[in-house]
Design a binder for these strands. Structure first.
Lengths: 137, 137
DNA sequence: CTCTGTGCAAAGCGTTTGCAAACGA
DNA sequence: TCGTTTGCAAACGCTTTGCACAGAG
């Protein structure tokens, strides 16, 4: 029984080979969109259906195993849920980096000023990464 | 010539009554999704088409007059572009509040650590507003 | 007058659903 | 064995497109 089998079961779902491979693929990519995931999955399961991808992404998102990251001007990507972090997106090469960041301060200031009980913080920073910035046109 | 007429023209688009009313409606709501906007627009232009709404929202977004706010678990809402701010979303009543916030500090820390040139910051905080928190079940 | 925008209908796409067979626990 | 999941095909819903006419500048 591998890690993903256990993880999936802990989230009250059956550990099918397709689900294990989805997690494996997402983990390798860090973040992946539906199309790319489908493409990768077909290499392992040639007859897998897009419906299966959607059903599993939805099931695992509802069971808090996956998280959808909504990006400006791009398709959403999915990641395995871990500690809170922001996302740094390069508009040139598409690379997405996780940024360890403590939202506590931001949340505290805002929650106090606005009498709000915050339970989720989504922060996406878009721009140009160092590699792309170095390229002289 | 009203304000919106001028604004629209400044963004290199023709100021049609439909566009003026779209801006008017979005301004009144602060943030509005496509369906609600269509509903409101039909009160003023009974034969307006949903295609017109989409074409205009897209045109005005591309011309940096409108901005799409992507929300977790909800349809996107649109707002008139103004100074940078974060969004506070109540998961109970759906209310969306703008929060004046200076992203400079966050951006500076991240940009330095990650060698990134940031040009857009999207921050959405979700939770429960004071009104909804006060309601005893 | 010219070019852009509107409204309608149709097309296009991404996502979901229903169902029978396969599979996990 | 029983309930869940898979894969397929069809349905669905949101968004875009093409076109003829109307309207802005």
């Amino acid at each position: 029984m591998n890690n993903y089998t256990q993880t999936i079961r802990e989230h009250k779902l059956k550990a099918t080979p397709q689900r294990i491979e989805i997690l494996h693929t997402i983990f390798n990519y860090g973040h992946i969109n539906i199309d790319k995931l489908y493409e990768e999955m077909r290499l392992k399961f040639s007859s897998i259906s897009l419906a299966t991808i959607y059903k599993n992404i939805n099931a695992m998102s509802e069971n808090h195993l996956l998280f959808e990251v909504k990006l400006p001007n791009e398709k959403s990507v999915y990641e395995i849920i871990k500690d809170e972090h922001a996302h740094l997106v390069c508009n040139s090469c598409g690379k997405i980096e996780d940024v360890k960041i403590d939202f506590k301060n931001i949340e505290k200031i805002i929650a106090n000023n606005h009498q709000f009980k915050i339970n989720q913080t989504d922060l996406v920073l878009s721009g140009k990464c160092n590699d792309c910035n170095s390229i002289v046109e």
